[in-house]
Every structure is written in C-alpha cells, then in structure tokens.
Amino acid sequence: MIIAEQKPLEEIREMLGDAKKVMVLGCGACVTICFAGGSKEVGILSSQLRIAAKKDGKELEVIEDTIERQCENEFFESVKDKMKEADVVLSIACGVGVQTIAELFPDILVLPGLNTTSFGRPKEPGVFAEYCGGCGDCILDLTGGICPIARCSKSLLNGPCGGSENGMCEVDPKTIQCAWHLIFEKLEKMGRLDQIEKINPPKDWSNSMSGGVRNIVREDLLEVKLES
C-alpha cells in the first residue's frame, strides 16, 4: 500500500489562503489504513480548520466527504457536484489521488493535504514501514525477501556498510533496521549464506524512475476496451 502522512496544519492553512469554502476529501484506500486520509481524518482535519479559522476571525465553510478510491475515475460520480461548489478541494489522498482530481476536473483547484512517502505496510500498531522502492526490477529472490533498495539507507546491493550497529542503521538507530543485517541473518537461517558472497552487479536502473516516466501500456487490455 501507499504510505502517507498529513502535512502540518499551518502549511495546509497557508495553502488554503483566503478560500471561503473548502471541501476536505478523503480516500477509503491506502491512506485510510495508515490513518492519514480516511473519513476519520477528514472529520478531525475539518474541525481543526474550522476552529483555527474561528480563532483568527476568518469566515470558513468546510464540507466533508470521503470516496472509496481517489485514484480511479468512477468513484468521483457521487461527489463531483459538491466538489464544484467549493473554492478549493483539499484532497487527503496520496499524490495519485490529488492528480486524478486535477486531471478529471481542470476547473477545480485541488490542493494536497498529505505528504506521500512510500510503498509499505502497517508493521505494528502505529508503525508504517517502507518496504518497496518501486525500482522496476525486483531482486527479492537474491536477498532473502528483504529489499535493500527501499530498506537500506544507501540502497546498497552488496552490504552491509560500516554503519550498521546492533542491527540498526546509523542514519536513525532508533527507527531504521539495517536491511543488510536482516538479509544476512535471513540467508544464514535459510542455509544460503553462499548468496551473501556473490557480487550483485550494478543494477539496471532504467526500469526505475531514472529511466524516465513509467507508463505501462498493455496492448491486450487496450483491445478489450475497444471491443466492449
């Protein structure tokens, strides 16, 4: 899933400027699971905006709504009229959701309420960890199912570096586990330590963002669309 977190309230208020009518639009998918942009967060953020406006003596109407997914066109049907009534739509979906609105509704001003951070998972209550770097060339078969691209602070392919201490990464020893420590232990447990001494060659980054924008075009699916 996509992990995101809410922007600081002050930054959001600054973006909203003098807008009088704001729609806070949540998303029922990933950002609901990471407690950043679901219906509950829509309610909390809307209240905060109202209270802050009142405190400053500013006029502000906040409309609240949440749709199932902001990344797909069809889910906007039920809210599009309400969206058009607002001066601003504050989307608290990931960056994909914000851009879907910008593309589908060119006349609406849409602003991002979240910072989208990574592909990950809720590891334990309150911890949303990064797991995948979206590099376009998966090597989890070589690394005991632990991704060094996303989970090593230097994305090393032949780690661990010298900055690994007691299983933690020097970049933030409180929260970041050393991915290569985990890989080493995992391969050891699996009896595959020979793998650790194989030199992983320079990676082909052309499938990552480095190779340019990645749009997948599936001819087989395009044809289905034409037929129907």
Partner: peptide, 23 residues
Amino acid sequence: AAENPFGDPFASRVPRLAKKIAA
C-alpha cells in the same frame, strides 16, 4: 577499499572482505 571489522553483524565482516577481494 575500506573495511570495518567493528560493524555488525560481525559474522558478515570476513565474507564482506572476501567479496571485495573477489571484486
């Protein structure tokens, strides 16, 4: 190249030296 015998996990440090030699 550099090597840090004091980085963890300790058991990975000789294999890493071997890897640099192989490289």
